[in-house]
Computed example of a mutant assay.
Amino acid sequence: MVMANATFDGSTRRGGGFLKALFLFILGCGLAAGGFFAGQYVTRTTMSPADEVLRLIEETGPDGTYAREEEPQRVPRELPDAPLFVTQYYEFPDPLTTNLKGSTRFLQLGIGLATQYDQAVLGNVQTHEMALRSDMLAVLSTFTEEDVEGTEGREALSVALRDAINHRLEQLEGFGGIESVFFPVFVMQ
């Protein structure tokens, strides 16, 4: 005896569940495929990443702003008679930390150097980094809190460090060559 699905009104229904499940499965697959292809269409680019970067570079000027359609005007510039030199920089990889004279506070400094001489000067700095760090710590320990406060104090500290560095390089290599000392990190706590 074959049993039929009975409904509330007493009629019978055969195979409706299978067709409904098949319909929902096909509908779900269609929606998933539509979403996939819509995503592919939206994210599709016709340029390679390298071409895209080149396009962005061409659209922007050297200062990062968008280039104008018109041709830029040249500004005449008078060059000085003295030759121009390239300034080279070197930053010590680790900051110096020391106590200040007569204080419980300490000073942490990042040290950067500048020279307009060739790469040999910076090579000498790297070669003798340990001795230079020792000399800089000795100089720092002679400064008090009040000595390093303000622009004038930092400038005096910069000059003292420059002189100590050049003195050590002259002793070891016969030539200093450091023209400026900078503080990319200056923390007093």
Rank of each mutant, 00 (worst) to 15 (best):
T46R: 09
R55N: 14
P72C: 05
S11Q: 10
R14T: 14
E59N: 13
I26D: 01
Q73L: 14
M47G: 08
P62L: 09
L79A: 03
V42W: 07
G61L: 12
D63T: 03
A6L: 10
R14A: 12
T65C: 09
F37D: 01
A38T: 04
I57T: 12
S48G: 01
L22N: 12
A21D: 13
G15I: 02
E78V: 05
T12R: 11
T45S: 06
T46G: 04
K20N: 12
Q73N: 06
T12M: 09
A21I: 05
R13M: 13
D9F: 02
F18N: 11
L31F: 08
V75E: 11
L79R: 08
N5A: 12
E52C: 01
F36G: 03
L79M: 09
R55M: 15
T60R: 15
G64P: 01
L31V: 10
V75D: 06
D9V: 01
R74K: 13
F23T: 01
P72H: 03
F8E: 11
G28T: 08
P76K: 05
P62A: 10
G16K: 09
S11W: 06
T65M: 14
E59P: 06
A50I: 02
Q73C: 05
G15T: 04
F23A: 01
G16C: 08
D9Q: 02
P76Q: 03
I57E: 15
F18W: 10
E70D: 15
R14N: 12
I26L: 11
A33N: 02
R14G: 08
T60H: 15
R68D: 13
Q40Y: 07
F36T: 02
A4D: 12
S11R: 12
L24R: 00
G61T: 10
P49C: 04
A32V: 07
N5D: 13
E78Q: 10
R44N: 07
G10P: 02
F18I: 06
I57Q: 15
A67Q: 14
E59A: 13
L22D: 08
E70F: 08
F23W: 00
D63F: 03
I26T: 02
I26M: 04
P49Y: 00
F8M: 10
G64K: 05
F36N: 05
R14W: 10
L31P: 00
P72L: 08
F36P: 01
S48N: 03
L27E: 04
